[in-house]
């Protein structure tokens, strides 16, 4: 079942088209990562899905119901970006108020449990006005999950958090997914998305330019396999022949003392390279193969 589905979803402000006719499906139980540079349209897209702003054209549905729909709101949790919390309320009061608003008033025990999950167990009675940025971010996540929603939207959930807190939140997000929640998150953090997301979409200028699992994205970018070879000295008579062959086999050839780095577009070429070295009577000590990371894919786009 598709929990999130958009059809030709677009958003314009005047003549500027921020989101350009996006078709997207997110299945139940997925942890969907939405990547993009600043201004790519990630937050605008998430804000449309959560009813904060309205689409200019196109449609979307959440949990099978055409949006925006007030009943679906009860089953979704949202952590919007750039939001401040109520500074006069304590963390506990926040969770009680916002869960009651979702129609699923949380007990004191449940509030404590969620505060514990995000690492705010010792700050439940503290007013949010005295919270640091990171603590507010954690409370933002806590309020998004307090009412046990089916679908969770997180806009940059770990930005501004210290590494330890970021890992805690990443683990929490993964656990939520394991417990059957569908999570739609945006992030700037490529390593985070690569690490935890089951589906990834890369957004550029209001359009999704690539979508798939990490393996699918990697397969698409297999033309970017970087091979590093550590070898014995190449006999002078063979150097020209071997280098000419390598330049024809791959690209970005970098020569160093007894080692070289080259980018190839096919795994088969690695075997051919090893044979070529053997024919030139050059011993190979080590072959390192680097598959494209999300960072490489992202930067390439």
């Amino acid at each position: 079942m598709n929990v999130i589905e958009t059809k030709q979803l677009s958003k314009s402000y005047g003549s500027a088209q921020i989101i350009k006719a996006i078709d997207l499906s997110v299945k139940e139980g997925e942890l969907f990562g939405f990547l993009g540079r600043n201004g790519a349209g990630k937050s605008t897209f998430i804000n449309m899905l959560t009813g904060i702003i309205y689409p200019s054209s196109g449609t979307y549905s959440l949990l099978g119901v055409k949006g925006p729909n007030d009943q679906v709101k009860k089953r979704m949790g949202v952590m919007p970006d750039y939001s401040t919390l109520y500074s006069s309320l304590t963390a506990m009061e926040h969770l009680k108020f916002l869960s009651a608003l979702s129609g699923n008033s949380a007990s004191k025990v449940r509030c404590k449990e969620v505060l514990n999950l995000v690492g705010l167990q010792n700050h439940g009675g503290k007013k949010v006005g005295k919270f640091s940025f990171g603590m507010k971010k954690k409370l933002g996540i806590a309020q998004a999950i307090i009412h046990d929603p089916k679908i969770i939207f997180l806009d940059e959930p770990t930005s501004g958090l210290d590494p330890e807190s970021a890992i805690t939140i990443q683990k929490l997000i993964q656990n939520l997914q394991k417990n059957g929640k569908t999570i739609f998150m945006t992030s700037h953090n490529l390593h985070e998305v690569e690490k935890i997301c089951t589906q990834i979409a890369i957004m550029k200028d209001g359009q999704i330019i690539k979508i798939g699992t990490m393996d699918e994205l990697r397969a698409f970018y297999r033309s970017k396999i970087t091979v590093k070879i550590k070898h014995s000295p190449i006999p002078k008579a063979e150097q020209l022949t071997l280098y000419e062959w390598l330049e024809s086999a791959g690209s970005d050839l970098t020569k160093e003392v007894n080692s070289l780095t080259i980018t190839v577009d096919d795994e088969k070429k690695i075997a051919e390279m090893i044979r070529a070295f053997n024919q030139c009577k050059v011993d190979i000590f080590r072959v390192e193969v680097e598959e494209p990371s999300l960072e490489d894919i992202f930067l390439d786009e």
Binding site: T50, G51, I52, D70, K73, K74, M76, V78, P80, Y82, S83, T84, L85, Y86, L98, L101, S102, Q143
Partner: peptide, 11 residues
């Protein structure tokens, strides 16, 4: 922007 917490929860 606290309104975002309200409008994402209720009508």
């Amino acid at each position: 922007r606290t309104i975002r917490f309200l409008i994402t929860r209720t009508s």
